[in-house]
Design a protein around this nucleic acid. Structure first.
Lengths: 109, 109
DNA sequence: TGTATATATAAGTGTTTGCTTATATAATGA
DNA sequence: TCATTATATAAGCAAACACTTATATATACA
């Protein structure tokens, strides 16, 4: 891997919001509307974070009806390192289970 | 490790110049005047990169006469991950050997 | 002491970042 | 068809970033 690609990948990861997004995605694929709930953040903000992660090829998108389902890109050269890093981080306060409990989980999968 | 600390560490790493500095330091301790040669960059620029890496506790400094010797901090929580990342990067064009050949290597150790 | 050397710090500048609000696009369903 | 829903994009803005030049500090050595 060259320095530029490493720089782009690490820059994409090194943001608290995006680390949270990746932490959630390390367990299951999710869509943007779910992240706005989980992270209590505006939709454009999430959308822009997704674009940054996608440009670094760290995540994949799959259009499903009106939803876009995002998942980790397991083919990325840093996937194993990323998994190691994410495992070092504590579980987020807001869980997907709480989303389900509130009936806010989208059944896109 | 918490999200803020991970963010600070990864932000410190995710810069091409600093990745080069860390790559060199993964082999031997060096001082700033050597980096200005190796990276062909101004002394204040290197000094400021060092400050950033030190704030993230990724490197240690040791004052030796008029030199400051920098080395990787092996106690850092991300030391192993960092080593893995640096091993993925190609060797820099400019080598410490070429510094020695030109008589520009400082004998600070 | 005075000069050279190694490094740090300060101030200035153009670029990037991460949000905001507003709007566009595109699929769903009454 | 029309309103709703999910997402993307654009423009604006304050803060952070990575350099620059100028200057300060501090050690070494003649």
């Amino acid at each position: 891997m060259d320095y530029q690609q490493m720089e782009q990948s690490l820059k994409a990861v090194s943001d608290e919001t995006r680390m949270l997004i990746l932490k959630y995605l390390s367990k299951e694929a999710l869509c943007i509307c779910e992240f706005t709930e989980l992270l209590d953040m505006s939709q454009p903000a999430i959308s822009q974070h997704m674009r940054k992660l996608k440009q670094a090829q760290l995540i994949c998108e799959e259009k499903r009806g009106r939803w876009t389902i995002w998942s980790l890109n397991e083919e990325h050269g840093l996937f194993e390192v990323l998994t190691t890093l994410l495992a070092m981080l504590p579980e987020p306060e807001r869980t997907v289970e709480s989303l389900i409990a509130e009936g806010k989980k989208v059944n896109c999968t």
